[in-house]
């Protein structure tokens, strides 16, 4: 036998992480290779040692008598807001979905203005309050899913729908953000150089890298959400995108 099984393969075997095809190939090899069989036995023995030792160690540990139901009774029984919590837990999915839908509708209303601004001459960076409002509504839909409480949330198909709405909405608001950044860059160049034509030209050229960034975030974000849909980290990504967009929009509103 020229080649033996690697440690990775043997470890995958004992942890049952191999595919059926991989296991079949491995079983065939093990039948003919006593050395690999011995190594597999070593791994199995080590695994058993770790498992048994952990079980024995953990069994020997007891909490103190202070850890009792009586200690948490005031917190459990005295929960005056239990009904409110139950109700809010049931209402939250509806609230999140409504906020996301309204946010998307507002963002779409603002979409024509965003597209026009992208192709028009840059003006002093200003922002539409509608896009900022849409971002605030998206953050309402996102923030409740951000924390640990995954198990009480929507079923995965509704999760996917909510994620899609927020993704689409942030993409639309992103166009407004690109327009604002472009305008800000143009006026920055104008302030430095004093040449309006140069500022306009650079502003137009800046659309290319900004557009590429937008495409990368939209497409990359879509793939990321598709792969990690429903997990806390996907809501974290939404939260960051919304935070950045909201920051730029509010900055432009106040400027």
């Amino acid at each position: 036998m020229n080649s033996h099984l690697t440690d990775e393969e043997l470890i995958g075997n004992i942890h049952r992480t191999l595919t059926d095809a991989q296991r079949e190939v491995m079983d065939r090899h093990l039948t003919a290779c006593p050395q690999c069989r011995a190594r597999l036995s070593d791994h199995e023995a080590m695994q058993q040692r770790i498992r048994h030792s952990l079980l024995a160690d953990m069994r020997g540990v007891q909490p103190s008598p202070a850890m009792s139901f009586a200690a948490i009774t005031p917190r459990v029984k005295g929960d005056k807001y239990r009904t409110f919590r139950q109700l809010s837990g049931q209402l939250f999915p509806i609230t999140a979905a409504s906020a996301a839908l309204i946010g998307l509708a507002i963002a779409l209303v603002d979409l024509p203005e965003s597209v026009i601004r992208l192709f028009a001459k840059p003006e002093p960076a200003s922002a539409s309050s509608l896009s900022a409002l849409a971002c605030v509504l998206f953050s309402v839909a996102t923030v409740g899913n951000y924390h640990e409480r995954r198990f009480n949330q929507l079923r995965s198909s509704l999760y996917g729908l909510l994620a899609f709405i927020i993704w689409l909405g942030t993409a639309v608001v992103g166009l407004q953000v690109i327009a604002i950044v472009r305008e800000a860059l143009s006026w920055l160049v104008f302030l430095v150089s004093g040449k309006l034509q140069l500022a306009f030209a650079l502003g137009n050229w800046a659309l290319i890298p900004l557009g590429l960034v937008w495409i990368a975030v939209v497409i990359g974000g879509a793939e990321y959400q598709y792969r990690r849909g429903g997990q806390r980290i996907s809501w974290k990504l939404f939260a960051w995108i919304i935070a950045v967009e909201l920051f730029i929009l509010i900055f432009a509103l106040l400027a």
Binding site: R75, R82, R85, F151, N152
Partner: peptide, 9 residues
């Protein structure tokens, strides 16, 4: 867990 038992599905 006990306070938020309504969240368990």
């Amino acid at each position: 867990a006990l306070v938020n038992i309504h969240r368990y599905d």
